[in-house]
Amino acid sequence: MSDPRPGHDVPDSRGRTGLHRTGMDLAGNPDVRMREVEVTSDGWHVLRRTTFDYRGRSGEWTTQSRETYDRGNGATVLLYDPVGRTLLLSRQFRFPVYVNGHPDGMLIESAAGLLDGDGPEEAIRREAAEELGVTIGGLTHLFDLYMSPGSVTERVHFYAAPYTPADIAGGGGLEDEGEEIEPVVVPYDEALTMVADGRIADGKTVILVQWAALNLFG
């Protein structure tokens, strides 16, 4: 008998078990047969190696293995002032982009966060309040996108919502999580230029700015 493994048979650092069973019951694609799921890292998020049989277009079955990073699903919102023609974004330090070529790691982004067990609307209202100090009224759901489908399981729920400058009170992120988030008001026309010249380089934010170009400020 193999030794107990955190996240498999015994609780991991967050008290989770059964992480190795994720995906084993999938039956939506008859050309995929699940074989084994191994938890290879069980930190705050979960890295798994999944082995499965795949039937290609020739009809031949092959055994393949993929690693997936599971950080849960998320939500993001474009906050826009229809009168002032501005967008309310954030600026914060992101180490992963800093270590991968961004000049200073200070990324300009739309408000976003993980669902953490909440519904998407509830989660993005929470994140907008924490990060930017905005209490959102009406929300418009835009679409749900897989942002890095080759390796990350996350699906992001996209929203848009109007705001006024008077709606901003507080924000800055959660101090106990080391967040230092600066609200940034960007004129819409400037946001388009910032996408073009690379000053806005965050994928979800580029998508939302382009959505605004098609639907808000044409």
Rank of each mutant, 00 (worst) to 15 (best):
S58H: 11
H157W: 05
S110A: 15
L132K: 03
Q64E: 15
V206E: 04
E109N: 12
P187N: 06
R5T: 14
M147W: 01
A111S: 15
G178H: 06
M147E: 05
V46F: 03
L114K: 09
S110N: 13
D53M: 03
L192G: 00
P165H: 08
E154I: 03
G43D: 07
Y159E: 06
A160W: 01
E121K: 04
V46Y: 01
E179T: 03
E182K: 00
E180A: 13
T193Y: 11
F93C: 07
R66P: 02
L89I: 11
P96K: 08
Y188D: 04
E36D: 13
D167R: 08
T86M: 02
R125G: 11
Y163G: 02
N100W: 08
T51I: 05
R94C: 14
E36G: 07
E190M: 09
F52R: 00
D144Y: 04
W61Q: 09
R126D: 12
S90L: 08
L192V: 06
T51L: 05
G101M: 13
T62R: 15
L139Q: 04
T40S: 03
L174Q: 12
D167M: 14
G150S: 10
L107N: 04
S65Q: 10
N29F: 08
L142I: 15
P30G: 09
R94Q: 14
V46I: 12
F143K: 11
M106C: 12
R49T: 03
A166V: 14
D202T: 10
R48L: 03
E177R: 10
D25A: 11
R35Q: 14
R125L: 13
A212Y: 02
P183H: 13
L26M: 12
A129H: 13
T164E: 13
S110R: 05
V10P: 00
Y69Q: 04
P165I: 08
P162M: 13
G105Y: 07
R21V: 09
Q92V: 15
E131Y: 04
D202Q: 14
G138V: 05
R55M: 08
V184D: 02
P6K: 03
